[in-house]
């Protein structure tokens, strides 16, 4: 179940951030999304918040939660799994 969600999250990242030249499966599940990892920033993070809410009905209510949720693809998938409606 979580593996399927992980694949979906990778595709959500590619689609919502319009990442070109990279396939979903090339994103590592446990690598950091920000900084040295995938190199995302707060502009990207807010785009992901909107996409998660649209696709899964999951809300990231504040900055502190966002910091935990957007650590990696796995942490995003786990948060969606625990909070989806």
């Amino acid at each position: 179940m979580i593996e399927k969600l992980i694949s979906e999250v990778k595709q959500l990242i590619i689609d919502s951030l319009r990442i070109e030249g990279m396939a979903a499966e090339e994103i590592e599940t446990d690598v950091a999304l920000f900084g040295e990892g995938l190199g995302l920033d707060s502009i990207d993070a807010l785009q992901l918040v909107v996409a998660m809410e649209k696709d899964y009905g999951v809300v990231v209510p504040d900055a502190a939660t966002g910091t935990l949720v957007f650590q990696s693809v796995r942490s995003m998938a786990e948060y969606i799994s625990e909070n989806r409606k």
């Binding site: 707060s42 993070a45 990231v60 209510p61 504040d62 966002g66």
Partner: peptide, 10 residues
């Protein structure tokens, strides 16, 4: 801004 629910402030 953080108290008002900003997603990020730097």
């Amino acid at each position: 801004a953080l108290a008002d629910g900003a997603f990020s402030v730097k």
